[in-house]
Design a protein around this nucleic acid. Structure first.
Ligand code: ZN
Ligand code: ZN
Ligand code: ZN
Ligand code: ZN
Lengths: 131, 131
DNA sequence: TTAATTATGTTATATTATTACACAGCGTTA
DNA sequence: TAACGCTGTGTAATAATATAACATAATTAA
C-alpha cells in the first residue's frame, strides 16, 4: 500500500476496498460493498476505477471484467501489465518479471506499428488447483 | 478462409460475416447484420461465437468486447493469441511471431503455476494514424 | 476572484452477456 | 425399433457491465 494523499474521497474508499481484497473485484460488487459509505451509483464507482487505473493503482483484468490492486510498486501507470489467472479458483497474480516486461516493451514487428502499452493474461491452474 | 464443413448453419453465417469484415465486430452488430438470415436473438449469436472461439476460427479482443477472424492458419485453438490494436482507428491485427509465441508459451515463473493459455494485446498507433 | 479543472450526485439508458425452457436432428447402441 | 446422449436451434426474459446527460460542488490556477 502506498500514499493516497492525492486521491479524492470516493477514490480512496474504492482503492482501499480493492487493496484489502484477496482477489479481483467486479464493479457491481464494489458498489455493493461501498454503499454504506455513501457511494450509491455505478457511475461513481466507474469514475473512481477509471482514475485509479489511469494512475496505475489498480488494473483491470480484461477477460474477467474485474479489478485488482497493483502489486508492483514501480508500476506507476497501467501501460505494461501481465497477470496469471487460475481458471479454476479465479485467483489472479500480477506477474512481475523484468525479462518479460523488457521483452514486451521493446517488442516490434514489421507492421510498422509503434506500441506504447500492452496487457498480457496467462491462464492455467494455480499451485493449489492443479493437485 | 478455410473449410467450414463441420460448422452448423448459424456458425457458418456468423463466421462468414466476421471473415469478410475489415475490422473487429461486436456481438450486437453481428446480430444486426444477420437478422435478414434468420438469426434473431443475442443468444444465437453468442452460442455461435463461443463455438467458433473454441475451435480457433475467431478470437475475442477482450479489451474491446469484439471478435475477429483468425488470420493465423496454424492457430487451431485460441490458446496462444496476440494482437496489436490501434487506439485511434481501432484497427486490429493478429500478431504472428514465432519467437514471441515460443517465448510466451514456454514462460514459467516461480509461482508454480502451469500456464496452458495466454492472450496478449499491444496498444499503440498504426502506421496510418501515427502520421 | 474569476476561471478552469476535477470530482460529485442522480437519473436514466445503453451495451454486453446469460438463464431457463422447449424442442429438433443425428449417430450410437440396447 | 426405441431409447439415449449429444449438439444445435428458437424464444422470452433477465442479469451484468458500462455510459450519457445534466446539475452542482470543491479544488486549483491565473
Ligand atoms: Zn501493476
Ligand atoms: Zn486456483
Ligand atoms: Zn489466431
Ligand atoms: Zn490506426
Amino acid at each position: 500500500m502506498q500514499k493516497q494523499e492525492n486521491l479524492s474521497k470516493n477514490q480512496k474508499i474504492i482503492l482501499d476496498l480493492i487493496e484489502k481484497s484477496s482477489g479481483p473485484l467486479k464493479a457491481y460488487s464494489i458498489l455493493f460493498n461501498v454503499k454504506k459509505q455513501g457511494i450509491k451509483a455505478p457511475l461513481q464507482v466507474y469514475r473512481a476505477l477509471d482514475k485509479l487505473i489511469e494512475i496505475g493503482k489498480i488494473h483491470k483484468i480484461e477477460s474477467r471484467n474485474a479489478f485488482v490492486a497493483c502489486k508492483n510498486s514501480n508500476c506507476q501507470v497501467s501501460k505494461a501489465t501481465a497477470f496469471s489467472i487460475c481458471e479454476n479458483c479465479e485467483d489472479v497474480t500480477e506477474v512481475s518479471n523484468l525479462k518479460l516486461s523488457k521483452y514486451l516493451s521493446n517488442f516490434a514487428d514489421k507492421s510498422g506499428m509503434k506500441y506504447n502499452k500492452y496487457n498480457l493474461e496467462f491462464f492455467g491452474l494455480c499451485k493449489n488447483c492443479k493437485k
